[in-house]
Simulated scan of single mutants.
Amino acid sequence: MRAPLALLTLAAAVALTGCSPRQIADFNRPAGASLDDGDFGNATMSNALVHTGSRAMAINLNRRFAAEVDSTINFAFDSAQLDGEARAKLDAQAAWIAQYPYVKFRVYGHTDLVGSAAYNKALGLRRARAAVNHLVSRGISRSRLEAVASYGETQPLVVTEGRERRNRRTVTEVWGFLEPKRLIHDGKYMQRTYGLYLESAQEPHNED
């Protein structure tokens, strides 16, 4: 009788709260788990980054990165080879990344929905590593780049069972800062920041 009683208790809890079992599980997750990548301790690390302001800085910088360069490149079907367009976009990414020597980046690989989940996850990771290798060839330190995550076929931009080029992609994102954090605001970083400040002051403004 214990198993049916447990099921009735869960059903009653769902009915009273108006939540699904999935929502109940999410409610009981540790604070910061929404920023977790699945590795042990990342929830705690994310909390520390949020409270120290490091995560907010990374988020703001990532928004600037995505606004100023194309953070996404695409691939041919069942391929991790970089074509001319992809290399040109990565070159632009490398030039932007070089301006911020203490910022770390992650490259996430994706595939379309053709093929098995296991094969696609491996293919996505190969694509991410290809992008990282090209950035390294353009002078970016490998210590600042990670190709550790592949979403395989789980996050399509276009939901279709067929071939879709827009789903076959890598996305480069700001991840954090190199240690020690106190070196972030050195002379080169502040010189670049000051340059951006001067450029913004010269933009036309509406006086109405």
Score class of each variant (00 low, 15 high):
residue 147 A to L: 05
residue 70 D to G: 02
residue 157 L to E: 01
residue 128 A to F: 04
residue 20 S to F: 10
residue 62 N to T: 09
residue 105 F to V: 03
residue 175 W to I: 07
residue 204 P to Y: 11
residue 61 L to N: 06
residue 149 A to E: 13
residue 56 A to H: 10
residue 70 D to K: 03
residue 154 T to E: 06
residue 96 W to E: 00
residue 45 M to S: 11
residue 8 L to I: 06
residue 76 A to V: 06
residue 91 D to V: 02
residue 110 H to I: 03
residue 148 V to D: 12
residue 156 P to N: 02
residue 11 A to Y: 05
residue 41 G to V: 05
residue 178 L to A: 08
residue 37 D to T: 13
residue 207 E to W: 08
residue 152 G to M: 06
residue 35 L to M: 14
residue 200 S to C: 11
residue 3 A to I: 15
residue 6 A to W: 13
residue 23 Q to D: 10
residue 34 S to E: 11
residue 110 H to T: 04
residue 92 A to W: 01
residue 54 S to F: 13
residue 103 V to C: 04
residue 76 A to H: 09
residue 40 F to W: 07
residue 60 N to H: 13
residue 67 A to I: 04
residue 87 R to P: 01
residue 86 A to I: 00
residue 98 A to N: 09
residue 140 I to G: 00
residue 115 G to A: 03
residue 110 H to S: 08
residue 117 A to H: 01
residue 162 G to V: 07
residue 39 D to H: 12
residue 114 V to S: 08
residue 144 R to G: 00
residue 3 A to P: 10
residue 77 F to H: 09
residue 11 A to H: 05
residue 146 E to C: 13
residue 126 R to C: 00
residue 165 R to M: 11
residue 6 A to T: 12
residue 194 Y to H: 11
residue 180 P to W: 12
residue 34 S to M: 06
residue 88 A to M: 06
residue 122 A to Y: 04
residue 183 L to S: 15
residue 113 L to R: 14
residue 185 H to F: 15
residue 157 L to Q: 02
residue 47 N to T: 03
residue 153 E to C: 09
residue 114 V to W: 06
residue 80 A to E: 01
residue 186 D to G: 08
residue 74 N to R: 14
residue 85 E to G: 14
residue 68 E to V: 05
residue 185 H to V: 11
residue 188 K to C: 08
residue 120 N to Q: 07
residue 52 T to A: 07
residue 46 S to V: 15
residue 97 I to T: 01
residue 52 T to Q: 07
residue 173 E to W: 05
residue 16 L to A: 11
residue 192 R to I: 12
residue 176 G to L: 02
residue 58 A to N: 11
residue 154 T to G: 04
residue 81 Q to P: 03
residue 34 S to C: 06
residue 107 V to F: 03
residue 121 K to F: 04
residue 134 H to N: 09
residue 200 S to M: 14
residue 39 D to M: 12
residue 96 W to M: 03
residue 2 R to Y: 06
residue 42 N to H: 14
residue 99 Q to F: 02
residue 76 A to T: 09
residue 125 L to S: 05
residue 173 E to V: 05
residue 54 S to A: 15
residue 50 V to I: 10
